[in-house]
Design a protein around this nucleic acid. Structure first.
Lengths: 135, 135
DNA sequence: ATGGACCCTGTAGCCACTACAGGGTCAAGC
DNA sequence: GCTTGACCCTGTAGTGGCTACAGGGTCCAT
């Protein structure tokens, strides 16, 4: 069981050192033992836990969702229904965000498409932003 | 020229009062004159400006982009090329975000699809999050 | 013994608001 | 004229998820 410094953990998971300390502060990572020189001393379990966190964060789960997933992952004999629920909710949220962004893109593309590249006074983009006319 | 309170402005633009004060604080809205009782007194120009801001924000422009757009909108005899550039950059950014989210959705949907709804120990979602095996 | 790479704590900053607390003002109704 | 309640004021702190210092300590190789 290898002794890992916070820098080792950072390198192996692609996380910044400050972020790891932040995860510890908010209780996402356990408080690790310290060396004589007061350095955090990690082992492979924390490496695994941090990998899990990073992967979940990369998939867009919020910190609170990650916290719930970690709790669930530890209760290995329970049904994974709760896991499914969290993931499903997150998927729905992502779908919604995609739909919102697509609508936004279409609207913005439409606004840009009407630009005749003349003076600002005739700019359709500006006009589209100020639809009440410029008193 | 009607005198508008901050609450009137808020109602007419769908903005919260606090947000309007925030916009003033960061210099996006001009400091308005005050009534005897120290209330902000707006007119239709500020209403128009705030509508512009809200619409640009709704289209996802950042505060800094809105600031630039407002500056440009005031220089009515210049070419609107700069406006086009800002809008184009923003459109590209949105496209990128959509692509990122779609990739995310596909990956997450895949992870969820592999779930066999058994115990957490065999949960494919948890496994997918901790790809290095469980110590 | 010295240099540089690493580690420590604590705090402040980022974005774009939002939410108070603790007060003042104003208009309507009695 | 007094009360009530809706509105307004300032100032500060919180949100999420980090990130970036400042100002110091530790460790290891030379």
């Amino acid at each position: 069981m290898s002794r890992l410094t916070i820098g080792d953990l950072a390198k192996r998971t692609g996380t910044k050192v400050e972020t790891i300390r932040y995860y510890e502060r908010i209780g996402l990572l356990p408080v690790p033992p310290r060396t004589e020189g007061n350095y955090r001393a990690y082992d492979n379990r924390q490496l695994g836990r941090l990998s899990f966190i990073r992967r979940a964060r990369d998939l867009g789960f919020s910190i609170e969702q990650v916290r719930d997933l970690l709790d669930l992952a530890d209760q290995r004999d329970r049904s994974c229904e709760a896991v499914d629920v969290i993931a499903g909710q997150h998927l729905a949220e992502i779908e919604r965000k995609i739909a919102d962004l697509v609508a936004l893109r279409d609207e913005l593309a439409d606004v840009i498409g009407r630009c005749k590249h003349g003076a600002v006074a005739d700019c359709r983009i500006i006009e589209a932003l100020a639809p009440h006319g410029s008193d």
